[in-house]
Amino acid sequence: MVSSKSILQNNTKKENLIKNKVVDKIKKPRKNKVMEKTEGEHKRKKVSIKAIIQDEKVVQKKKKVKFIMPSKYVTESIVESCLNAINQLAAITKKKNAIFEDEQPIFAEIHCIKIQTSKGNVKFVFPHSTASSSGEVCLITPDLKKGRKIDHEPTVDHWEEILRNAGITSVKTVLPMRQLRVEYDQFELKRRLLTQHDFIMVDTRVLNHVSHILGKMFFKKHNMLIPVRLNEKKKDIKMAVDIGLRTSMLRLSEGPTSVILIGHTGMSKENLKENVLSLVKQIQDKYPGGEANIRSIALKLPLSLSVPLYITLRPSNSVVNPPKMRMKKPKTFRDFEDELSTIPNSRVRVAPDGTVSLSKQESSASDEEEPTDEKEEVSDNDEESDNKE
């Protein structure tokens, strides 16, 4: 016979088990089919992402990405295709603006990865002239005689005769320094001088004075104030003027883009191609940061879209330090150091930019003994003079 106590115990155990199952169901609800599908998709995605990352690591180990520099990428065929596109854009603009039939300038637009630390100008010399055949070329020369009341016409005649004897026909106007100061003293007259001439060359002897007189307005236009070395004694004035006509200045400002003139639409395709290739070669040494700091190079007209010549996806981490301008220092560009008489045991140093630095020297025992010897010598000399008297 089964006792009543055992029956009650079995019933309580069953009730407790049922209660525990209900509580578990309440705490952990059933998963829907949608939830099960989403969890499965997440697991599959995680597995696929891990596999992709492992594959990328294996590929990076096997093959490292090598970025091509512009000097190796830009070839003659690429330059020819870009120039063909530029010629088509020039033909379209001629149809739209039939009045303007002049030669249009062609520019090279350069984008950098990291901006240089300071502003400046970089001089590029091309194998062919960038000045148009119908353009007005002006030459600013120094005066033969300095003074306010001296006439400037003799200097004009003097330089025109020199240019005529050298066989130079590209220079249309000669402008001495005195005429520039007297006749172009107002803003409107300076702007007229800027608009009348397409190319302005300045003798290196008066370049700083001319840039100070004309102001920053002339630095905004391309190919303005080209430095030229004119020596009357040496017979190489024609070569100096030809080099000036083949030079172009790259204005580097605070932004990442800079533009330089490389030619015009009236030039032959071969000459333009040589100018572009020479620009790419000179960028290696003259551009701040070298060719590794170049993001893209493109060709364009004044009012047209830019045709890409070179583009790279090189990361900015490839250029570690900010690029700096390479300035050529003259031979006399050095510090001058000497003793300072007003302060004892000190030396003064003057830099070419005008900065002055003072350095003191430690006084030694020998320096202290020297004045005593000088006093004794002076006393002996005084005794000799007294005896003579």
Score class of each variant (00 low, 15 high):
residue 11 N to G: 02
residue 24 D to Y: 05
residue 30 R to I: 13
residue 37 K to Y: 12
residue 39 E to C: 02
residue 42 H to I: 15
residue 54 Q to A: 14
residue 56 E to F: 10
residue 71 S to K: 06
residue 76 E to S: 10
residue 78 I to T: 06
residue 80 E to A: 09
residue 81 S to M: 04
residue 82 C to W: 02
residue 84 N to E: 14
residue 90 A to Q: 09
residue 93 T to S: 09
residue 96 K to L: 10
residue 97 N to E: 08
residue 100 F to E: 11
residue 106 I to K: 07
residue 110 I to Y: 04
residue 110 I to R: 09
residue 112 C to W: 07
residue 120 G to A: 12
residue 121 N to H: 10
residue 130 T to M: 10
residue 130 T to R: 07
residue 132 S to M: 15
residue 137 V to H: 05
residue 140 I to A: 13
residue 142 P to W: 14
residue 149 K to R: 09
residue 156 V to Q: 12
residue 173 T to C: 06
residue 177 M to L: 15
residue 178 R to I: 07
residue 180 L to M: 11
residue 180 L to S: 04
residue 180 L to N: 05
residue 184 Y to F: 13
residue 200 I to V: 12
residue 210 V to E: 07
residue 212 H to V: 11
residue 215 G to S: 10
residue 224 M to N: 06
residue 227 P to H: 08
residue 230 L to K: 01
residue 233 K to T: 07
residue 238 K to R: 15
residue 242 D to S: 13
residue 243 I to A: 15
residue 249 M to H: 00
residue 253 S to T: 05
residue 269 K to G: 03
residue 271 N to H: 11
residue 273 K to L: 08
residue 277 L to S: 10
residue 279 L to V: 15
residue 279 L to P: 14
residue 280 V to R: 03
residue 281 K to Q: 14
residue 284 Q to N: 13
residue 284 Q to M: 06
residue 286 K to G: 06
residue 304 S to C: 03
residue 305 L to M: 11
residue 306 S to H: 08
residue 307 V to Y: 05
residue 316 S to C: 06
residue 318 S to E: 04
residue 321 N to S: 06
residue 328 K to M: 04
residue 328 K to V: 03
residue 330 P to L: 15
residue 332 T to Q: 11
residue 336 F to W: 05
residue 341 S to L: 11
residue 343 I to S: 03
residue 352 P to G: 02
residue 355 T to V: 08
residue 359 S to E: 10
residue 365 A to L: 03
residue 370 E to H: 03
residue 371 P to Q: 04
residue 372 T to F: 15
residue 375 K to R: 11
residue 379 S to F: 01
residue 387 N to Q: 07
